[in-house]
Amino acid sequence: MASLTVTDEQVRGNPAKVIQPAWVRVMHWINALAMILMILSGWQIYNASPLFAFTFPREYTLGGWLGGGLLWHFAAMWLLMINGLAYLVTGFATGRFAKKLFPITPSGVLHDVRAALTFKLGHDDLTVYNYVQRLLYAGIILVGVLIVLTGLGMWKPVQLYYLVALFGDYPTARYIHFFCMAAICAFLVVHVVLALLVPKSLRAMIIGR
Rank of each mutant, 00 (worst) to 15 (best):
M1E: 15
M1C: 13
A2E: 13
A2I: 06
S3L: 13
L4T: 14
T5S: 10
T7L: 10
Q10A: 09
Q10E: 15
V11T: 11
R12M: 10
R12H: 11
R12W: 02
G13R: 06
P15Q: 05
A22Y: 08
V24I: 15
V24W: 01
R25C: 04
R25G: 04
R25I: 12
H28A: 08
I30Q: 02
N31S: 11
L33D: 00
A34D: 10
M35D: 00
I39K: 03
I39P: 00
L40T: 11
L40Q: 05
G42Q: 04
G42D: 06
W43E: 00
W43H: 04
Q44S: 01
I45R: 03
Y46V: 03
S49R: 11
L51G: 14
F52Q: 03
P57K: 07
Y60H: 10
T61C: 12
W65Q: 13
W65F: 15
G68D: 10
L71P: 00
W72M: 07
F74T: 03
F74H: 13
A75K: 04
A76E: 09
W78G: 14
W78R: 03
L79D: 09
L85S: 12
A86C: 12
Y87A: 10
V89Q: 05
F92P: 01
A93N: 03
G95M: 06
L101W: 08
L101G: 11
F102V: 08
I104F: 07
T105F: 10
T105I: 11
T105M: 10
S107F: 07
S107L: 14
G108K: 01
V109I: 13
L110D: 08
L110E: 10
D112C: 06
A115T: 13
A115H: 09
A116I: 12
L117A: 13
T118F: 11
F119I: 13
F119Y: 13
G122C: 05
T127K: 01
Y131A: 15
Q133S: 14
R134S: 15
L135M: 14
Y137W: 03
Y137N: 06
I140H: 06
I140A: 07
I141S: 02
V143Y: 01
G144M: 04
L146N: 05
T150P: 01
G151Q: 05
G151S: 03
G151V: 04
L152R: 02
G153R: 02
G153K: 07
W155I: 11
V158P: 00
Q159C: 00
Y161I: 02
Y162M: 08
A165I: 03
L166N: 07
L166D: 08
Y170W: 14
P171K: 07
P171H: 03
T172R: 13
F179V: 04
A182K: 05
A183H: 05
C185E: 14
A186C: 07
F187T: 08
L188W: 08
V190T: 09
L194V: 07
L194W: 11
A195W: 01
L196H: 05
L197N: 12
K200W: 09
L202M: 15
G208C: 05
